[in-house]
Design a protein around this nucleic acid. Sequence first.
DNA 1: TATGAATGAGACTTCATTCAT
DNA 2: AATGAATGAAGTCTCATTCAT
Lengths: 220, 220, 220, 220
Amino acid sequence: MIFCNHTPGEKPSCRWRRRKEARPEEIIDAALALFVEKGFSATRLDDVAKRAGISKGTLYLYFDSKEAIFRAVVETLIGPQLQQIEKLVHDFEGSNQALLRQLILGWWRNVGETGLSGIPKLIVSESGNFPELSEYFVKHVVKRMRKVFVGVLERGVAAGEFKPCDAQVAARLLFAPLVHAAIWKHSLQPWDDTGDVPVYLNLHLDIFFNGISSGAAKNE
Amino acid sequence: MIFCNHTPGEKPSCRWRRRKEARPEEIIDAALALFVEKGFSATRLDDVAKRAGISKGTLYLYFDSKEAIFRAVVETLIGPQLQQIEKLVHDFEGSNQALLRQLILGWWRNVGETGLSGIPKLIVSESGNFPELSEYFVKHVVKRMRKVFVGVLERGVAAGEFKPCDAQVAARLLFAPLVHAAIWKHSLQPWDDTGDVPVYLNLHLDIFFNGISSGAAKNE
Amino acid sequence: MIFCNHTPGEKPSCRWRRRKEARPEEIIDAALALFVEKGFSATRLDDVAKRAGISKGTLYLYFDSKEAIFRAVVETLIGPQLQQIEKLVHDFEGSNQALLRQLILGWWRNVGETGLSGIPKLIVSESGNFPELSEYFVKHVVKRMRKVFVGVLERGVAAGEFKPCDAQVAARLLFAPLVHAAIWKHSLQPWDDTGDVPVYLNLHLDIFFNGISSGAAKNE
Amino acid sequence: MIFCNHTPGEKPSCRWRRRKEARPEEIIDAALALFVEKGFSATRLDDVAKRAGISKGTLYLYFDSKEAIFRAVVETLIGPQLQQIEKLVHDFEGSNQALLRQLILGWWRNVGETGLSGIPKLIVSESGNFPELSEYFVKHVVKRMRKVFVGVLERGVAAGEFKPCDAQVAARLLFAPLVHAAIWKHSLQPWDDTGDVPVYLNLHLDIFFNGISSGAAKNE
DNA sequence: TATGAATGAGACTTCATTCAT
DNA sequence: AATGAATGAAGTCTCATTCAT
């Protein structure tokens, strides 16, 4: 089970959890792994079923089609993470730099090091075949996420903590290595083992904040 | 047309003969576009043929199989770019920072803004299904490229131009936004038009070099 | 149905399950008939499926490929017949001539007049395209069969029943009209109906044994 | 060139020799060899062309279709041999047994040991796919040939040389080993090298005539 | 006359989906 | 709820045939 964010009491209202309780998650986990590894088209439902420990026919008790499974995989991951992030931002006390550091490293811990890490690769790979999904993802994940980062960066600039700059662009730069690491992990990593990601991210944060900081508050 | 292997002077005497010579390129161009858009599996050879302006059977006069077309797409692009880059590095006179800036911006001009820009997404998406290709790509492109960057960075550190740091990691950070932009362009860009890439890259370079420079030689 | 591998007592409980068990045989029977009639290459799997009363895709639940069906057709028939023959030879009491007569006429009854009769034509026709199968067939059927005949003939010579002769060659002569009749049945028979095969075989046996017998034991 | 029976002066009236002079024969030779080896369906015109030393397109200058080549292959061989045989029978002076011996051994020399030897296998293999050809072959070759043998056998019976018997059946028995040897040569021979065919045929003739002769004129 | 590039119908094969049990 | 045998549409690949040169 890749997802344990449900508060126990919450009612399963989501569209993708129409049916039984436990099964769909096992199916989704199996499908996620295979979609990430092989892509949507090259993944056979036979394999999904086998990995989920059920028969092929059973898939259709929970999902209407292969594409429905795909949508469920993606929709499942959307939302829970963001709320957490937005809450963190809201409650945080400390420098904006420290907040951003925590956001980046926390994302890697919560996403990059879990089964969710395959999602970026999956979205990127299949965007061409699932336009409505791309639109959905951009709107509900990418832009929402960026908004958070932009907000913190602009707050930092306003506070004199960071040099003036285009926060939209800076936010993308700040986040890019994170996405890159997640995509890499599920693609060329096995042939190019580049070591510890946190080390990579820490150097990124050091250089980035050193580069963007106004003289007043030097990094570390 | 992404490739220009014709020696400039040769005249394609008869119209027919020229087709014969041009076909593989036309096929590869068509296949690249579709593979990037849809992925290998979801691309139908019918569509490749249609886009190349030929019939389905004709593909098999030039390639043995769908997979052979895929390999040709990837292998064809490998090499030409790198030589150019290595030459640039060898001949360059100026600061290491200036060289790196030129490498980054040049890569975007020569790759990011051409048909080649789809390759990173393609490789990433299909790495799971074509292991030998991944190995090849990592060995002949990724590591060779990184070696260049690492070399320049280390030279810069030795010259006191950059602060001491792990050049391997720094090289990846320097290059990541480039790859990210290329992948983005062929995935979520249509739904998240994030503006001019050179602007993005310039901010990246500013922040990065500002962050990594020793006090002596400030960027800007 | 050319094969009866069911243990007589087993009851096919549910109709469905029985199909599952009967399928391979039905497919093989259908394939044998068509391969014999048209040859391997000219037989379409569509037709095999239709004749077996199933859909094209179902073939692949039981066999990996068209060639696998072909091998099954041939391999399935090999063995059962031979054991029967060798047992007959072992148990027989009577003159060697009588034994050989019985072998010949029995073969026609058990093979020539059943669905198996098409096999010789099939093997002969496809030998060029399936070398390993030819080798297998020669080793496990042709030579094993000939060995039996040679044995009996040599025994007959030793017993003074037959004139001295090259038993290897004589065995082939004795068997040739049998194979010829089987091949003819599945090729030019429809256009050259040459009457009752047993009559043909009896004349063969009369002439052959009359020709090979030493004076002592005249035929009939 | 497998065929040199044309009397020089004869005009090429035959349907299959519509076009140029030398080419068709090379094509037919190539096609015969491949059809015999692989069967009609499994033979590719590419290979026929290659073996004939011409390009695939050129085939169509001489024949309308693959099937036309097949018909030409078969029709080419029909006729010439028979005239020769019928002439031999007509002119022969000597015992009927001696004549039959000469016919059998002569057939092997003229057909069995030449490129024509593959025809029986070819006819047998493809009879199911070319009914009109089977009909033609039976009518113009099989029955005509058998008529000759039946005639001589009946003459022999009438002369008291052979025992009374069904000459139709006896004729088939007399000829069967010949056909069998020819078919074997092009099928399982490579895996079952059974030695010299003339030796085989001579034993056949010895046994057969010993078996069929009346007491009066014993075979040698 | 000869070529060989190009075609497209048709074959083998795969796999998402259905449905009787 | 669960199975897995069965289906058939759709994809890859082959090859007889055509046709511009």
